[in-house]
Design a binder for these strands. Structure first.
Length: 646
RNA sequence: GCCAAUAUAGCUCAGUUGGUAGAGCAGCGGUUUCGUAAACCGCAGGUCAAGGGUUCGAGUCCCUUUAUUGGCUCCA
């Protein structure tokens, strides 16, 4: 049998393993190899026999796939420790995740912090025992019997749901056995450093109808240094958390008696959002959008037409008794579409009116479940750069492309262009209740959208069950400092609501036809975008977005009058300037401005006041130079106007 | 909604087995007028998230509620 390892051909006997070969040929560092990737991309145990000639890749912790094996084994190590300390705990599942692993247990009492420490200690002593995971397979009936004998009902359920012909593999680790597809590390002693980071509840099989299990999250590394570096990285990310710096820097706050998901935007947060709104509105006007301003609420009759009443009622704030058919019941709007459609419906439209592009800076209300609110990212009232385009079928591709390009333009301007990923969100054909329309329409809409996406040539992943209830979406996704992904921007194709609302145009041939409607945001939800900008820049907003762009600092109060005149000149140049005239040491004032992430400081003493100059410092601490005031104004104005991402 | 953790001055935090609420920074009033990481003196600031309970006595123990944070589920 001929194998290729590290690109070099080598001979191997039948039943030989890559692990053995490495041990024989590279004994000094063979312990860094965790598993092996076969030519077809599957990963197997390092010491599992190779069945055919092929090129293989031994995986280390540096490889994504290798890391997953490492984390997966670490989750088993944790399950071993838990079973030893809490024999009554039932095992559910324990996969690797992006930066670690978790394992779900069914146990009455939750795990406390002390429990976690005990488990870590037990893991340490188990890891030192040098246990080799041993793989075996069983027939279905025996597998079920084995798991029933061990008293593991969740494992039994998992086996029962696997296909009839699936190979059921088990891993023995000392006196611990688990149903597991593997692969695993050659030896659990490879796991040198780990930390159990938190406990959380998680539904069995991810369904809220099922029992809630206790999940323990952890992370693991081949060395203590790597663990320390990882934990340090997490701390770093937490320091960028918009929820922390956004409150510290007074961008927003919350008040317990106002309620969850209803943040108070302070002057700084409001300023950034205002800058973004003006930027978006002006750019959209340049691109042929017309602006509208529509009501924040409507009678339920409107939502019955749009489908919201049947498909989105739980997400709405309703005023009045929804069960009283005779009463006049209102609801705050969760989406703008049915309102903005009325602009189109106001009179008969011709094909000459299309495409019609409508934009609105639109405030929406969604009654999210109480556990789901998160800083400025997930709130109950928010404002989005909303828009709807009505077009003919042959205009769809160009208009869709225009929406994507506009979104990319804004993302680039604020500096988030490289931080996003694209998701093609489709419906879930097994859950038709959630959607309106028939399967044929969904298929054709999705095929059309896929074709457009491919034509545009963007990289995207497809996701089932993520569509809006009326159509498929292109979602532009971004991750926050905790690694959690959210939708920042969305562009949707809707082949259904136009018909529901009776939106038509008179085509060239004199026939009435329904336009295709695109729903889209251009910079998304302003609150969410602000949150992600705060995290991206750790609060140090680019000059053009900074609530305060320049602060004037005096050495003594002899310069106060000059400082006020400088501030006035800066404001006259449309720069957001303020003075700090307190009798504090200049070093203190500078440091405070830096802590507040103000881009520029103009420092002045007697000399500057006499000469009419200022000494410019930036927030990094660089002294840019002493120059005439007009030069300093030009310098800062340039950064503002060019929207540089300093 | 579910599983957890948390809530003490504007901020960061102390507060012993239940016995009169504390510090630093910020703020305010003076003094000081100083060149890049913190001048000096003084003052004020709290229904310990809210409500109930146990107790002679609760920041501390118990219950309920609210909010914040991390997950699950759901979504811009």
């Amino acid at each position: 049998m001929e194998l290729t390892i590290f690109g070099k051909p080598c001979e191997m006997a039948e039943g030989g393993s890559v692990g053995q070969w490495l041990k024989d040929n590279a004994p000094e560092d063979f312990k860094k190899y965790l598993a092996v990737e076969l030519a077809d991309g599957t990963v197997q145990d390092l010491f599992a026999p190779i069945s055919a000639s092929q090129a293989v890749k031994p995986l280390t912790f540096e490889d994504e796939a290798g890391r997953r094996v490492f984390f997966h084994s670490a989750s088993h190590l944790m399950a071993m420790a838990v079973k030893k300390l809490f024999p009554q705990a039932k095992l559910a599942i324990g996969p690797a995740i992006e930066n670690g692993f978790y394992y779900d247990f069914d146990i009455d009492e939750s795990f406390s912090q002390e429990d976690l420490q005990k488990i870590e200690k037990e893991m340490l002593s188990l890891a030192k025992k040098s246990i080799r995971p041993v793989r075996s397979t069983l027939a279905r009936r025996e597998a079920i019997a084995k798991m029933e004998a061990l008293g593991e009902p969740y494992k039994v359920e998992l086996i029962q749901d696997l296909p009839e012909d699936a190979e059921l593999s088990f891993y023995d680790m000392g006196d611990f056995v688990d149903l597991c597809a593997g692969p695993h590390l050659p030896n659990l002693s490879y796991i040198k450093a780990f930390k159990l980071t938190q406990v959380a509840g998680a539904y069995w099989r991810g369904s809220e109808k099922n029992k809630m299990l206790r999940r323990i999250y952890g992370t693991a590394f081949p060395s203590k240094d790597q663990l320390a570096a990882h934990l340090e990285h997490i701390e770093d990310m937490k320091r960028r958390d918009h929820n922390k710096i956004g409150r510290e820097l007074e961008y927003f706050t919350t008040v317990d008696y106002i309620g969850q998901g209803l943040p108070i935007l302070m002057p700084k947060g409001t300023k950034v959002i205002q800058i973004l709104e003006r930027f978006v509105e002006d750019e959209e006007e340049r691109r042929g959008y017309l602006r509208t301003k529509t009501p924040l609420m409507a009678k339920r009759d409107l939502y019955k037409i749009s489908g919201h009443w049947d498909h989105y009622r739980d997400g709405m704030f309703i005023m009045g008794d929804p069960d009283d058919e005779a009463a006049e019941v209102f609801a705050l709007r969760p989406m703008t579409c049915p309102f903005q459609f009325q602009v189109y419906l106001n009179r008969t439209r011709s094909y000459r009116d299309l495409p019609m592009r409508l934009g609105e800076t639109s405030t929406l209300f969604r009654n999210e479940s109480s556990g789901e609110m998160h800083g400025l990212i997930r709130v109950r009232q928010f404002t989005i750069s909303e828009g709807h385009l009505a077009c003919t079928p042959d205009q769809v591709e160009e208009e869709f492309r225009g929406c994507v390009e506009l979104a990319q333009f804004f993302l680039g301007a604020v500096g988030l262009g490289d931080d996003v990923s694209y998701r093609f969100s489709k419906w879930d054909e097994n859950d038709k209740e959630k959607y309106i329309g028939n399967p044929e329409d969904w298929e054709s809409a999705q095929n059309e959208m896929r074709k457009i996406l491919d034509d545009i040539g963007i990289d995207y992943v497809e996701a089932d069950g993520e569509a809006a209830f009326y159509g498929p979406k292109l979602d532009i996704q971004i991750k926050n400092v905790h690694g959690k992904e959210d939708t920042l921007i969305t562009v949707q194709i809707d082949f259904q609501l136009a018909e529901r609302f009776g939106m038509v145009y008179i085509d060239r041939d004199g026939e009435k036809k329904h336009p295709v409607v695109l729903h889209r945001t251009s910079i998304g939800c302003y609150e969410r975008t602000l949150a992600l900008l705060l995290e991206k820049y750790a609060g140090a907003m680019p000059t053009w977005l900074s609530p305060t762009q320049v602060r004037v600092l005096t050495i003594t109060d002899r310069q106060d009058a000059y400082a006020k005149s400088v501030e006035a000149a800066l404001r006259a140049a449309s720069l957001r300037a303020e003075c700090d005239l307190r009798n504090e040491k200049i070093g203190f004032k500078v440091r405070e401005a830096q802590m507040e992430k103000i881009p520029y400081m103009l420092v002045m003493g007697d000399r500057e006041a006499e000469e009419g100059t200022v000494t410019v410092r930036n927030r990094k601490g660089d002294n840019v130079g002493t120059m005439p005031l007009s030069e300093a104004v030009a310098l800062i104005k340039k950064a503002n106007d060019e929207k540089v991402l300093d």
